[in-house]
Simulated scan of single mutants.
Amino acid sequence: MIFWSTLDRSLILPLVPAIADDLDTTVAAAAGAITAHALAYAALQLLWGPLSTRWGRVRVLVLSTALAAAANLVSALAPDMTTFLLARTASGGAFAATFAAVLTYFGDMLPMRRRPAAMANLATATALGLAVGTVAAGAIGSVLEWRWIFGGFALVTALLVPLLAALPDSADRGTERILAQVTRLARNPWALGVCALVALEGVLLIGIFNLLPVALQQSGEDVFVAGLVTASFGVTVVVVSQLMKLVVGRVRPWQFLVAGGASATAAFVALAIHVSALSVLVGAALMGVAWALAHTTFQTWMTDAAADSRALGMTLFSISLMAGGALGAALGAAAIDSRAFGVLFAGAVGGAAVLGVVSAVARARYRNRDI
């Protein structure tokens, strides 16, 4: 489900110009669907988190996946930009149920020493969703209308519903009041600090990254090339996250964060200099390295920092990430309007450097609570 929910986010990335042309709107307005999707994904976790605790993970996943299938069908049939925007918002809100539930499950079921490998597998699933989504949408979009892509995705999503319903629900049903968990989290500076860092990560590696295919198409490349080179992000995440398993016991977490911050900084330097197929290929690949090294470290860190209120803590973690992604997408949409991608990428250089330095220093000072 992590793979499939990520695919929902990535399918639109190379299709924005085609959607804008078909729905008779601007590219910036069509790109607003990316921002709306991310905002709904962030906000609706406030609903799905408590519901998954009370109802159980499987019941929530069945309901949310059915809603996502319906939302994608409406996306495929949308007669105008308003309908399409509402449908993409609904899809993001439906798939908001997925990510935090999986993170919470890993945190509950695995000891601290086994979590980094599990988080690496999670990063791999996310990366495959990004890579497959951008390449497949770019390839199919070059020969078929974009509506077929969303229609096909809706059909397969609907087929997943009975498969999910057949799964055993192994999650415990929580009885503690949400207010008590919120109060405990509000008094936890480490958990709040991790969420702040993850929000900045979301701005850079989700929000701004999502606009790379649009930036490349504005430079003159076609939809297939834009999707293909952007998919280097997913390829490097898969490779690096699996390699991490071989060294995770010998490399300190803060060292992963240093390397991740350096990779993100180098990525945006390449993009700030010039936007081309080669620079996007290199930049997306380096961003994938940053995601594999830094994000998996943040995930593992948060499962420990919020150990006494893990379900809500992981929900807040995911909300922070996607809220940052929504902000980054909004900045990207503004850059589309003014064709100011150089300024956007130059600012991202500074943000990536700050992320690497601050997160590494903070993680070096942190002492694990769980074992």
Rank of each mutant, 00 (worst) to 15 (best):
L159G: 04
F209S: 09
S232V: 04
G133C: 01
N188F: 10
V132F: 08
A154W: 07
D169W: 04
Q181Y: 05
R252A: 15
L185K: 03
R187G: 14
F153L: 06
L216N: 11
Q181M: 10
D222S: 13
A158W: 03
V198A: 05
L205E: 12
W190M: 13
W190G: 08
S232R: 02
V240F: 08
Q255V: 14
R147H: 09
A186V: 04
G234I: 02
R187I: 05
A136F: 08
K245V: 13
G207H: 08
T134G: 00
G138D: 08
S170D: 10
R177I: 03
S232M: 13
C195V: 14
F153M: 05
L163E: 07
L144V: 11
M244E: 14
I140F: 09
G193E: 10
G141S: 07
Q218E: 15
Q242G: 04
V143R: 11
F224H: 07
W190T: 15
E201R: 02
L212E: 13
P253G: 10
G133Q: 01
S219D: 08
R184I: 02
A186P: 00
A215V: 07
L204W: 00
I149H: 01
L243V: 11
I178T: 15
S232F: 12
A136S: 09
K245M: 08
P162T: 07
L197F: 06
R252Y: 00
F153C: 03
A226M: 07
L163Y: 01
R147L: 04
S232H: 13
Q181H: 15
A154L: 10
R173Q: 06
R173I: 04
L155N: 07
A136T: 05
L179N: 06
D172C: 03
L200N: 14
G152V: 02
P213S: 08
G234P: 09
A231Q: 09
A196M: 14
L167S: 09
S219L: 04
P168C: 08
G133N: 01
V156R: 12
P253F: 02
L205A: 14
G220W: 00
V225T: 15
F233K: 03
L130N: 01
F209G: 06
W254T: 14
L159Q: 05
A171E: 01
N210D: 12
L228P: 08
N210R: 00
A226N: 08
L246K: 13
A139H: 07
L197R: 09
